[in-house]
Design a protein around this nucleic acid. Structure first.
Length: 562
RNA sequence: UGGGGCGUCGUCAAGUGGUAAGACACAGGAUUUUGGUUCCUGCAUUCGGAGGUUCGAAUCCUCCCGCCCCAGCCA
């Protein structure tokens, strides 16, 4: 898994862990965890966390647990547990037998709560949710203590036990921890740690009607699992004092929480809420739409696990808010696929070419290299005959200066085949070009002229008689603004209306008839394409464009054109 | 007016008192049967700003400015 290209820069978390290992802190162990809440699909931001947590563990010979943070039965579903596991595995990580659930700790968590009550550190509050909010104060004003704050331990124990027994309705009481209602950190103003929710839980069924909350559950789960470094995102920085307080008060093992900045990507939205809106609003076809920044979306689009891992290594880990350029992700994909993807020829927007001096019935098998970056990939035979298809935009009747593809009177090379010269342009009644007639030079078979003459362009092509038909989906970025929803604009106004173009009339070389779902190819001169995971069938493939090749001509054309 | 963070190239990001790594992007050039790949070259006298300490500061001190997060019985 170690690609050597670029040495990955160090980061503050690695430095901390390195130092801890060196000084034998916590026995020199390294145990991390990836703790998703099973209430949605994983996206590229989660991939950053996954790579970090599993990566640090692997680097220091430690372990990384997969732990589902399933403390809110109202929002969580098993469907998500399965997709999360699939995604983490697909990314290339293995949690072995360490698949944990916060709900597995409910019994222990309850005992710890009883202990807190007995110590006088927790109390049952009977204020309503709204009252609790009022008592909490504001950002600039201190809160005030609940009238129930000084109930006796005995009374609290009794009430808490009855909460658990189901004697009260949702919202009647909560269990809070007694810290400081005047703290400048609102998380310390007697945070709630248990609430009543008469809802059955996917894993614990109806065993519980009270459920522990994040701040209380997460730190204790980390402690129970012997986590050494609990890595989370910046918004939890304010929660760290509470994390530490709970563990210290209970006198249990204390992991170290370290916060890092979450990933933001240009031209992309990564908030769970907005992603849901894109799906529910019908802007995309689902969570695995190839335009979605979900792991499922990238997978379907044709991204490799390796490219995503490389990306996560290169973006680094730091504490400052930042927006990574989408171009970097695309670069990582190209870099990976350039090395590994077999080359094939496919014509997306066909223009018929007739080689007038080529025999009607003749068919030749021409040798083509499968991957110039990987000699071991070998060669294949591609059929050639009198009628071919080339890309519509590889021909121009009246070409601008820097266009050096096919044009009237001009000679170009057909890749691995022959030099051809355009002799005539055939148009329909409306003046549309429907066919180009060319002559070929038989001495240029394979693509080189014995007389040494050069040609400025090499075109991809496909034999009309042998081509297979295919659907190809051209994907572009979902948003046409680097910061969708930035400023006062609603993000839906930044949706790129041209993010998907479906081409149904594509002609591909025959070898592609047997393309396996999820197999990736470079369509020469066009980009990297992936046989759709669900829609592609033998003999009738459907390809998704993962990313285009870098395109000098596109830049030149853009400059000149506008 | 509270608490917690963060400000180094267009975008990420190393750097932790010894004189600004690297990547992407961008711009040139070379090679090329993919206008792909590869290969060269260029791209922060300067680290949010102003003072100060020091032989020496992005790194230490002071003040100022800007940005992000926090008032769920969500995570």
């Amino acid at each position: 898994m170690s690609q050597t290209e670029t040495p990955t820069p160090s980061n503050f978390i690695r430095n901390i862990i390195q130092e801890d290992v060196k000084t034998n802190k916590r026995g020199g162990r390294v145990v991390t965890r990836f703790p998703p809440e099973p209430n949605g699909y994983l996206h590229i931001g989660h991939a950053k966390s996954i790579c970090l947590n599993f990566g640090m563990a692997a680097e220091f010979g430690g372990r990384c647990n997969l732990r589902f943070d399933d403390t809110n039965p109202l929002k969580e579903e098993m469907e998500y547990v399965e997709s999360i596991k699939e995604d983490v595995r697909w990314l290339g990580f293995d949690w072995e037998d360490r698949e944990y659930y916060a709900s597995d700790y409910f019994g222990q968590l309850y005992s710890f709560a009883v202990q807190l009550i007995e110590q006088g550190h927790a109390y049952v509050d009977s204020l309503s949710a709204e009252e609790i909010r009022e008592y909490r104060g504001t950002l600039t004003e201190p809160g005030k203590e609940s009238p129930y704050r000084n109930r006796s331990a005995t009374e609290n124990l009794d009430l808490f036990e009855r909460m658990r027994a189901g004697e009260f309705e949702d919202g009647a009481h909560v269990l809070r921890v007694k810290i400081d209602m005047t703290s400048g950190n609102l998380n310390l103003r007697d945070p709630t740690i248990y609430r009543i929710r008469k809802t059955s839980h996917d894993r614990t069924g109806d065993r519980w009607v009270i459920y522990p909350m994040y701040d209380y559950t997460h730190c204790l789960s980390d402690s129970l699992e012997g986590i050494t470094h609990s890595l989370c995102t910046l918004e939890f920085e304010d929660h760290r004092p509470l994390y530490d307080w709970v563990l210290k008060t209970l006198a249990v093992y204390r992991p170290q929480q370290i916060e890092f900045a979450r990933l933001n990507l240009s031209f992309t939205l990564l908030s769970k809420r907005k992603l849901i809106q894109l799906v529910e609003g019908g802007y995309v076809s689902g969570w695995d739409d190839p335009r979605m920044p979900t792991i499922q979306g990238f997978r379907r689009r044709g991204f490799t696990p390796q490219s995503i891992r490389t990306f996560c290594d290169r973006i680094g880990v730091a504490k400052r808010d930042s927006i990574v350029d989408l171009a970097l992700l695309e670069h990582c994909l190209r870099e990976d696929l350039n090395k590994s993807a077999p080359r094939v020829m496919g014509v997306l927007k066909p223009l018929k070419v007739v080689i007038v001096n080529y025999p009607e019935e003749k068919v030749e098998e021409l040798e083509a290299i499968n991957n110039p970056e990987e000699p071991a990939a070998g060669v294949r035979q591609v059929p050639f005959c009198r009628e071919l298809y080339i890309e519509r935009n590889d021909f121009m009747e009246d070409p601008p200066k820097k266009f050096f593809r096919l044009a009237p009177g001009r000679e170009v090379r057909l890749r691995y085949a022959y030099f051809i010269r355009c002799e005539e342009v055939i148009k329909d009644a409306d003046g549309n070009i429907v066919e180009v007639r060319c002559t070929y030079d038989p001495t240029t078979r394979g693509g080189d002229a014995p007389d040494g003459r050069k040609v400025k362009a090499t075109l991809h092509w496909v034999s009309a008689r042998h081509a297979i038909d295919a659907e190809v989906r051209l994907y572009d970025r979902l948003f046409n603004h680097p910061h969708p929803g930035g400023g006062k604009t609603d993000y839906t106004e930044h949706i790129n209306p041209k993010s998907l173009t479906v081409l149904t009339d594509c002609k591909l070389e025959p070898s592609l008839a047997s393309a396996e779902p999820e197999s990736r190819y470079q369509f020469e001169r066009l980009g990297y394409f992936c046989a759709d995971r669900w829609d592609s069938q033998p003999g009738r493939p459907a390809f998704n464009r993962a990313v285009t090749l870098r395109d000098q001509w596109a830049k030149i054309a853009k400059k000149g054109g506008s």
